[in-house]
Design a protein around this nucleic acid. Structure first.
Lengths: 221, 221
DNA sequence: GGCCTTTACTTTGGATCCAAAACTAATAAA
DNA sequence: TTTATTAGTTTTGGATCCAAAGTAAAGGCC
């Protein structure tokens, strides 16, 4: 919020993720600027940022358009996220965790158990669990040291998350969601165990699997 | 070159990669604009692009500074590149190659052999081989379908390539370079074989190994 | 003599203005 | 009727202007 052009990028990201701008839609600087009640300059800056994130695509000199995703693209984006997080997890396992990091992992895993232990899920619980899951991923990435990986992931993160969000939250299928979250929670615990034991290869594989859960499961339905 | 702000980003990238702007140096919009003989606007746009690429880093409201890399960062960046290219290669192996792609791989591998078959290297040959190597990587990435991976790699590519370039080209060590290139060529041929055989897991591992050759080898010296 | 405050300068962020390129539409010719 | 050329409109890219925030330096106060 501090510098407005970051804020503009966030707003546009949200508008795109919420489907307010349909895929393939051409975005004019003037139109967007007017909608947001600002001038063209910060919009132009935000367009460059969103282009790098893969949400917008250049259309020659006709400006930018919202990128179109096929199902294959979504799957692919999740795989990219998976290998990057897998790499982060492996490095974390190889370099060892601090006791503080260990406690943090324990904390989030415990929170996840609390949500699932109720034996059923309502929409609110799912939202809560998605937050927990997100924190777990964040923790893996941030703990892996060397900001290079964290940067790489954050650069590639908006795209799969935006694209996959609509798949994951399927409000008609709460019981399916419950089983999926059970699976994810199991993964969290396995990953944590392997991290503690320093099993680099295993934790990398688990983390890659973990990133794919949402997609794999939705394929089964 | 078409739109100038892309061109500005390229110029700045090159200046940073060539070490013209030392790491940690603060870049003022006004100063850079004057150096390039243009106004601040395209520089501001280029700064956002380079920030997303990880070459520049925000310094609060004091503008941007050239990012500083430790040896660990470089190693990490190469690993990121490795897992992404590994993913691309695996997908290519799983989806199978067209006969045209097969011919292209054959072509570049043959070119590599021709350089190495001379039994020694001069500086010019190294430059040539680096180009060939680059083409091989490009081919893997572009052949893997779904532009999502190609985008992810290209977003993460400037950083490791910039950081590692100074390590790879060590002009005093031509004989070492020769052995390194022999190793890389061997990898190319193994990768190609595994691609033809559709051995997804193996080609992924080889590709990851391959990305690390430069770093691994320089550790031995 | 050191520290706090105030003021002036530097620099980024946002808005507006101008030029250039591209798309559109209309008119004229084949 | 169709096509090509040209004029007009729309839109992006670049330059300049203004405001706001931050820094640094100088001067006053404890």
């Amino acid at each position: 919020m501090s510098s407005s052009n970051q804020s503009v990028a966030s707003q546009l990201r949200k508008l795109i993720e919420d489907g307010h701008y349909p895929q393939g839609e051409r975005l004019g600087e003037e139109a967007v600027a007017e909608q947001l009640g600002i001038s063209r300059t910060p919009v132009r800056l935000a367009f460059r940022t969103l282009e790098q994130e893969g949400l917008l695509k250049r259309a020659g000199k006709r400006g930018f358009m919202v990128r179109e995703f096929t199902d294959a693209d979504v799957h692919c984006a999740v795989e990219v996220r998976g290998v990057l997080e897998g790499l982060a997890a492996r490095r974390l396992a190889e370099h060892g965790m601090s006791s503080q990091q260990r406690e943090e992992f324990d904390f989030w895993i415990q929170k996840g158990r609390e949500v699932l232990d109720k034996g059923h899920l309502v929409e609110e619980d799912i939202q809560r669990w998605i937050e927990l899951n997100w924190n777990f991923h964040e923790l893996i990435v941030c703990s892996a040291g060397s900001g290079v990986i964290a940067d790489a992931i954050s650069r590639n993160n908006h795209l799969p998350f935006a694209a996959a969000a609509s798949i994951v939250i399927d409000k008609g299928k709460l019981s399916h969601e419950y089983r999926k979250l059970q699976l994810a929670q199991l993964h969290h615990e396995l990953i944590f165990q392997s991290l503690v034991n320093g099993e680099g290869a295993r934790v990398e594989m688990l983390m890659r699997e973990h990133a794919l859960i949402g997609i794999r499961y939705s394929e089964l339905l």
